[in-house]
């Protein structure tokens, strides 16, 4: 079956705009792949087909997390779904992030155009949308992803990786948006010269919600931000000497802050 559009609407409904004729009693079959292969059964999925558009309610099927091959089943015959849809929609990502945590369904297009469905278990996190580096501070802004019910007050906690340093800074929360400015002088004062790099991992804490949120950026199509996004570094004076400080993405796409002594030293990209 060839489809022009394959997207998620209303959160959990797969919408397919069909390019080929079909019988109205066609349905989908989801075949497990990857870690689910041989472990989980195939899942039949009823379709509501009208005027060349098919809808499948993915939430009702309670599909386990993982990636699923999608087959079009008609008159007892199974065939792949070839989609012209790039399967990436920035507006849909924004809608998904504003929903409560739970299962998120994403259409995927393979290199040969076949449709797959990925199911992810989501949990709230502080999603970075903007990083601004100034002479003595770093300002972060973003949204409380998958956390529409979360409310302030909030504070950002920076923890010195592998060491005991900790900095707490008040953050603002306005609806689903948050913002925080991290002063760099306290990080510099806590710098331990014996370690070539001092990394500071960030967490947004909302005491009223009893929630600690990791700070990072996920859920768009860029996996592996380290080396792709780069931020300027600033020189900060400290009792330990002059330090070079900059925010960076870790290999897990969490945002962290790196401080190194201002001398040639190997540092994360």
């Amino acid at each position: 079956m060839r489809v022009d559009v394959s997207r998620i609407v209303d959160g959990d409904v797969l919408e397919l705009e069909l390019l080929d004729r079909t019988a109205e009693d066609a349905h989908l079959l989801l075949l497990p792949t990857g870690k689910n292969k041989g472990v989980v059964e195939a899942i039949p999925l009823p379709l509501d087909i009208k005027d060349g558009t098919a809808h499948a309610d993915l939430a009702r099927a309670e599909i386990p997390p993982g990636t699923w091959v999608v087959r079009w089943v008609e008159a007892g015959k199974k065939r792949p779904i070839i989609t012209s849809d790039p399967c990436y929609d920035v507006a849909e990502v924004a809608r998904a992030l504003s929903r409560p945590a739970g299962r998120r369904h994403l259409p995927l297009r393979t290199s040969d155009g076949r449709l797959r469905i990925q199911v992810r278990q989501t949990r709230p996190y502080a999603r970075i949308e903007r990083v601004d580096v100034a002479e003595s501070e770093i300002t972060l802004a973003g949204i409380l992803a998958y956390g529409p019910a979360l409310r302030g007050p909030a504070e950002l906690v920076a923890r010195q990786r592998g060491l005991s340093g900790e900095l707490r800074v008040p953050a603002t929360v306005d609806g689903s948006r948050f913002g925080v400015t991290v002063p760099l002088a306290p990080l510099a004062d806590a710098h331990v010269l014996e370690r070539p790099h001092n990394e500071w991992d960030l967490t947004l804490v909302l005491p009223d919600s009893g929630t600690d949120l990791h700070v990072g950026t996920h859920d768009d199509d860029i996996v592996g931000r380290k080396g792709r996004f780069s931020y300027p570094e600033v020189l900060v004076e400290s009792a330990s000497g002059r330090l070079r400080v900059r925010p960076y993405y870790t290999v897990k796409d969490h945002l962290a802050i790196l401080a190194v002594a201002n001398s040639p030293a190997e540092a994360p990209a």
């Binding site: 022009d4 070839i82 989609t83 012209s84 790039p86 929609d89 155009g113």
Partner: peptide
């Protein structure tokens, strides 16, 4: 191909 077809809506 088959080639995908941009929806021309993403701000990219």
């Amino acid at each position: 191909g088959p080639y995908a077809r941009s929806r021309l809506t993403n701000p990219i």
